[in-house]
Design a protein around this nucleic acid. Structure first.
Length: 202
DNA sequence: GACACGATGGGCT
DNA sequence: GCCCATCGTGTCT
């Protein structure tokens, strides 16, 4: 059952990246297409802080791939990696700062059959655990790069449901010397890399 | 043009 | 936990 909740306005995303990342946790990510509706509660995200963050794709300069991150907040940045996976981010902060929040995992809520069909498996815990799996479950590819979360077929609802405290850790897959404790997650069977859950901000 | 390298995930030990 | 497929992208020549 999809809760009757309005989508988040652009002003939600037009804030400092770490604030947006923390406050996205527990909110529901929706996508409605011809295939149907899928929804999942965000349980894991990571903040990437543009030209101030050597782990960000936007660290060096604006390029054709990362251009969307330099624009206004509330748009989707999707990139392709390892020859087979997509990762989706929500652009944050003010135009020109290139902040983004990587969507790493959701707890599936609605459209489980559609997610399972797109993923080619039915294990609930594996539908959207990890950024590549999340993109596959939502059907997101480079074609969705630049999608507007304020008006488009992908959006985040205002309602927030938290099943536990917001934990933080170093980010996943980032060289330690470049990293910051900018991963925000909930201890959940739907969160990836639970063993790497060192809370360095506590 | 050439080349090195992933903000990963599935399979196997 | 370890291995590695696979290809778009950025950077350098």
């Amino acid at each position: 059952v999809v809760p009757a909740t309005a989508r988040l306005p652009r002003s939600f995303y037009s804030r400092p990246t770490l604030e947006v990342a923390e406050s996205l946790l527990g909110r529901t990510l929706y996508r409605e297409t011809e295939e149907g509706l899928v929804a999942g509660r965000l349980v894991e995200v990571e903040a990437y802080c543009g030209t101030e963050d050597p782990a960000s794709h936007a660290y060096r300069r604006l390029t054709p791939r990362n251009a969307i991150m330099f624009g206004p907040a509330g748009y989707l940045y999707v990139y392709f990696t390892y020859g087979m996976h997509h990762c989706a981010n929500i652009v944050t902060f003010e135009e020109g700062t290139a902040g983004a929040v990587l969507l790493r995992a959701v707890e599936p809520v609605e459209g489980l059959d559609l997610m399972a069909a797109r993923r080619g498996l039915s294990d609930l815990r594996l539908l959207a655990k990890g950024p590549g799996r999340l993109c596959q479950a939502y059907g997101l590819t480079r074609q969705n790069n630049g999608s507007d979360l304020v008006t488009g077929d992908l959006w985040v609802g205002e309602q927030r449901v938290q099943r536990g405290p917001v934990l933080t850790s170093m980010r996943v897959g980032v060289k330690p010397e470049l990293d910051k404790p900018w991963r925000f997650f909930e201890d959940s069977p739907f969160t990836s890399h639970r063993k790497a859950s060192v809370n360095l901000l506590a």
